[in-house]
Amino acid sequence: MTVPFYNRRAFLISAGLAGAALVHAPGQALAAGLAPTRSMRGGSNNYRPGAPLVDNLGRGFFVRGKVLRAGDGAPLDNLRIQIWAATVLGGEREPRNHGSVLTRADGSFELEMEQIVPNFGQPHAHLAYDDGRFKTVFLRPVMPSAKDTAVSADFVLQPA
């Protein structure tokens, strides 16, 4: 039996195209590997660019995280992460609550500061990468409990 317009070549072409589409469409992220972190709502609120590099902003509370490159997930070292939050020293606009740290060789960073306190209804921190080499990202992690003494947020950055 001969079915018109249906032969091995047609089958291979259509199957190939369908396969390519399958790999390509949802596979965009797969092929690209680790997806970049998107900025969070309200993440940039009360941002003051150029927070100074500091050893710490106080004692007892830790803001931690890791910075990786989108795609291959390689750790990014020596990048500046800016951090601010409402603490026992005052609100988010208090200059003593703003500081920056550099990432280590494994992409990790940590800033010790005063205890973060609930502000505008939620205990949360603000973190920013905003130095141009990669696309800017603002994060606003919320602490599960106001009694927590650490909060963490990770960045996956894509080239600007």
Binding site: M40, R41, G42, S44, N45, N46, G91, E92, R93, N119, F120, G121, Q122, R140
Partner: peptide, 19 residues
């Protein structure tokens, strides 16, 4: 106290669910 947080709330784009 915080113009951006308040504007986010008034414009219904605040991250806090109670706003």
């Amino acid at each position: 106290t915080s113009p951006p947080d308040t504007l986010d709330a008034l414009l219904l784009v605040s991250p806090t669910p109670f706003s």
